[in-house]
Computed example of a mutant assay.
Amino acid sequence: MLKKISFFISSFFLLWLIVAAIPPFQNTGIKVSIQRGEKVYNKVCLPCHMADGGGAPNMNPPLIQTSYILGDKTKLISIVLHGMTDRVAINGDYYSNNMAPHNDLTDQQIADVLTFARNSFGNKASAVMPVEVKSVRSKKQ
């Protein structure tokens, strides 16, 4: 009986050490995605949406706490892939500068840059996954 208890305690301790040594995948995965996304943002998005995500009045919308950033991921992915020519109202202001499509970016790059935007500038939202981008990209417009 004592051997069984000792074995159980040893096994439990070993399992605890293994689990404690492995960082949570979700936190690690999203952090890496945000880091990659920041690089894409700085190269592609920053000229229009600015370093602080504030955009340009009446031209390029802000990325701060808006339904476009925090809301429907499919719509957001579609905007990045296909661009946008609509005049849109965001937080009581209208923005009308055309956004070029960025379908030259890979699914991973789009997922990363959107994850960055959804988790920067005071935003906190779920990550965008490459498979979600792939799904939107494969649909006919």
Rank of each mutant, 00 (worst) to 15 (best):
H49G: 06
V44C: 11
N97E: 14
M129N: 06
L70P: 03
S135M: 13
R87Q: 13
I9C: 06
W16Q: 07
V88Q: 03
I90M: 08
G55K: 03
S6F: 14
A111P: 12
S33G: 10
E132G: 08
L17M: 13
L81A: 08
G37F: 00
L46V: 13
L15W: 07
T115S: 14
C48S: 08
G71N: 00
R87P: 05
L2F: 02
V133W: 02
I69K: 01
A56P: 02
V19C: 12
S120P: 04
L114V: 10
N91F: 05
Y41K: 04
V19Q: 09
K31D: 11
T74Y: 01
Y94P: 03
N123L: 02
Q65M: 09
A21W: 09
V80S: 05
T115W: 08
L105T: 11
D93P: 06
A21G: 10
S126L: 15
T28D: 00
D93S: 14
E38I: 01
A111S: 14
G54R: 01
V136Q: 00
N123E: 07
L17K: 07
S135Y: 10
F12M: 10
G83S: 13
I30D: 02
M84K: 13
L63S: 00
F25I: 12
L114H: 00
N98S: 09
I110H: 05
P23E: 04
I69E: 03
H49F: 08
P47I: 13
D52N: 15
V133P: 04
T66K: 04
K31P: 02
I64Q: 06
G54N: 10
S138G: 10
F12Y: 13
P47V: 12
M1D: 03
A111Y: 09
Y68D: 05
N119F: 10
K39D: 06
S10A: 14
A21R: 07
F13S: 05
D112W: 07
K139V: 11
A56D: 01
N98H: 07
K75H: 09
C45Q: 08
K43S: 09
N60S: 13
